[in-house]
Design a protein around this nucleic acid. Structure first.
Length: 323
DNA sequence: TACCAGGTGGAGT
DNA sequence: ACTCCACATGGT
């Protein structure tokens, strides 16, 4: 299987996509489990899936599974990437770009940017790790948590063997067959909250979590003591889900909004981090506003899809640094 | 070397 | 209610 010619499957026409939009969607702070490979393909993990994505101007977006394909895989990928959402060429009618010149500029810079639909539990884990950390470091924490405390995927090879040569050792476990000396790779899912409850805080700290280890341990214990909490919270409307999330240790308004938006699909959530404070100062004149006030402004000004607007502003601000 | 990173919780006004 | 600060660690 490992020396088989890879077969790329088309995901169909995706208007106005760019490689920058795809990078921003996969690796711009929504998810922490997508890795750009030297051959310009993306390797990503979510739930019990691993997939590779490839974009080019001529052939648009293609993918290949890395586990045996089943009928549900492509549908799950399309749902995860929100390919069926209604944005066309970035100028979604859901957002007030007609009357907001800065928003329009951001949307034109990242056409077709979308909000991922990630599994709830792993979104919660990712953003519990996110406090005062850079995205590259959060990705490293996720990789370590998966490798040390997650469940290995059943298969041991990738369809594209060239990628295997350069995978960071922190992402996978490599063994060599005794006779042929061919490498075999093990890849790992993130630990579930049930699995995390069995891990000591000391072991968590060893995954470079720092003070966040206490929050993750506390959250794992809370969920273990409240069976069905995840499933129930996933059924709640935005305000109630956010309130429930904020009862967890280490989850305040910002992380609750990130989890509500990226993990529960609540499009009106408007997470406010340090970048968003800067953006709203510079671009909207909100000097001296508290994060809570900025979040309220965002939901009112941008409306039902405030979360998508927030992601455009976030992408723009990071791309333009101090300027 | 400082300063910053997709913050939160607790203590002291 | 608001301000200040500890909390760990690595990137720039």
């Amino acid at each position: 299987m490992s020396d088989q010619e890879p077969v790329w499957r088309s995901l169909g026409a995706t208007p106005c996509w760019t490689s920058e939009s795809l990078r921003e969607q996969l690796d711009g702070g929504q998810a922490f489990r997508w890795h750009l490979q030297p051959d310009d393909t993306w390797l990503g993990y979510w739930g019990n899936r691993i997939a590779q994505l490839k974009w080019s101007k001529t052939s648009n977006l293609h993918w290949q599974p890395t586990s045996p394909i089943d009928d549900a895989f492509e549908l799950e990928l399309r749902a995860y990437l929100a390919l069926d959402s209604t944005e066309t060429c970035g100028l979604s009618d859901d957002l007030p770009w007609l009357t907001d010149a800065h928003l329009r500029r951001c949307m034109e810079a990242f056409p077709s940017l979308r909000i991922l639909r990630q599994p709830f539990g792993e979104t919660l884990l990712g953003f519990l790790c996110s406090a005062t950390k850079q995205i590259v470091q959060i990705k490293q924490m996720m990789a370590l948590l998966a490798k040390r405390h997650g469940t290995p995927y059943a298969h041991t090879s990738l369809p594209n063997p060239s990628i295997s040569q350069v995978l960071p050792k922190s992402h996978c476990h490599i063994t060599y067959d005794n006779d042929s000396n061919t490498p075999e790779y093990k890849f790992f899912m993130l630990p579930t909250w049930g699995q995390l409850a069995e891990v000591s805080e000391t072991e968590l700290r060893a995954c470079q979590l720092g003070f966040r280890a206490r929050y993750i341990k506390g959250t794992a214990d809370y969920i273990a003591e409240h069976p069905g909490w995840l499933e129930h919270t996933a059924t709640l409307p935005y305000a109630e889900a956010k309130e429930a999330l904020c009862t967890l240790p280490g989850v305040g308004e910002k992380i609750a909004d990130c989890v509500a938006l990226f993990g529960l699909g609540h499009q009106q959530a408007f997470p406010v981090d340090t970048w968003m404070i800067k953006a709203m100062q510079r671009r909207y004149g909100l000097e001296g506003w508290t994060p809570s006030q900025v979040a309220h402004f965002g939901r009112v000004h941008f409306g039902a899809h405030a979360g998508l607007a927030q992601q455009y502003l976030f992408a723009w601000e990071r791309a333009h640094g101090g300027r």
